[in-house]
Design a protein around this nucleic acid. Structure first.
Length: 310
DNA sequence: CTCGATCCCTGGACGC
DNA sequence: TGCGTCCAGGGATCGA
């Protein structure tokens, strides 16, 4: 039985999933004007009053992805006389992060509201754009001009656009675990737990390897497989777990291609060894112990004491 | 700079 | 069946 949306563990909004949602919204709501805003729970919104004050009257010019954020580009708005009030004379953006369980989709205004709907944007064509998020791990912020620019500089390069040189330098200059680096949005924007594990499996790199330990060749390979995984996942409309359906009622398909994530105890597709799970950088990490050798097995023959662990 | 711990929050899975 | 417990995760924050 298909439902328009399913919540819970079915959906992890990483780059490919957010890209899928953003493309869907670009088709369905770009060009529409926001008539009014209604708010429910607001603890995930930076400045709720700003949404109510500044969004009505603005047109949604485009919907873009920025890392795991969606960026709704909004027109400037004028008052009834066609003059521009200072504050609203500039173009602005609504930043939306889906967290773990966020959904942003338009529907007929008459349609019953899903549980955990927290924001309603009334559109000029009679529909409503609704934000639903059971866990409220998402984020919403209205930003303009310098504040918006400043916010966007907090993030690293887009993994699909980053050059080989830039990728290698921002990874190999860091001593943190590679898994932590891939998840760090200030290093690269958009990679989450699933695609970090999938790309590390493909690159045959253990999640606990240090950035500084990677050879130039390994960095090159990692970038290539990461981009490949992300592109293929976008083509497949993202990964659905359980029965998640996207804004157009279609499930993503990429979970069929997972080689590591969620496969604890199953056989490695490459070598047949048993996929293991361990916590790295505070997150479940799935890897093949044979294809992705642990960095810790290199203590034999080295009796010169390394610096104490603390 | 980097680490781990803690918290946020709800629903799903699992054990009894 | 129902209840309790654990777990999932992105990110902010704090202390070490």
């Amino acid at each position: 039985m298909l439902r328009p949306y399913a919540f819970g563990a079915g959906f992890m909004p990483e780059l490919p999933e957010v890209e899928t949602v953003a493309r869907g919204l670009q088709k369905s709501i770009a060009g529409r004007r926001i008539v009014s805003v209604r708010l429910g729970k607001t603890d995930f919104i930076d400045d709720p009053a700003a949404l109510e004050q500044h969004l009505p009257g603005r047109q949604i010019e485009s919907v873009e992805r920025y890392g795991k954020f969606m960026l709704l580009r909004l027109s400037a708005r004028g008052n009834a006389a066609g003059e521009l009030e200072n504050e609203d004379a500039d173009a602005a953006s609504l930043l939306v992060h889906l967290g773990m369980t966020g959904q942003l989709a338009p529907c007929a205004a008459a349609q019953p509201c899903a549980k955990h709907t927290h924001v309603w944007f009334e559109l000029d064509d009679g529909r409503e754009l609704r934000y639903t998020d059971p866990r409220r791990f998402g984020r919403m912020a209205y930003l303009t001009g310098a504040l918006l620019a400043e916010e966007l500089t907090l993030f690293g390069a887009d993994p699909l656009l980053v050059s080989a040189e830039e990728f290698a330098s921002c990874i190999r200059s860091r001593n943190a675990q590679i898994k932590a680096l891939l998840l760090d949005q200030s290093v690269l924007r958009g990679v989450g737990n699933i695609y970090a594990d999938e790309s590390l499996w493909r690159a045959k790199i253990h999640p606990m390897r240090r950035g500084t330990e990677l050879s130039k060749k390994q960095a090159q390979v990692l970038r290539r497989v990461l981009q490949d995984v992300l592109r293929k996942a976008i083509t497949a409309r993202g990964s659905s777990i359980s029965d998640f359906l996207d804004a157009e009622g279609q499930p993503g398909e990429y979970q069929r291609h997972h080689r590591a994530y969620g496969r604890e105890g199953k056989r490695c597709y490459r070598c047949g060894a048993t996929i293991q799970r361990m916590i790295v950088a505070g997150r479940s990490s799935y890897f093949c112990p044979k294809c992705q050798p642990s960095p810790r097995v290199r203590k034999k023959g080295k009796r010169r004491g390394r610096v104490r662990n603390g």
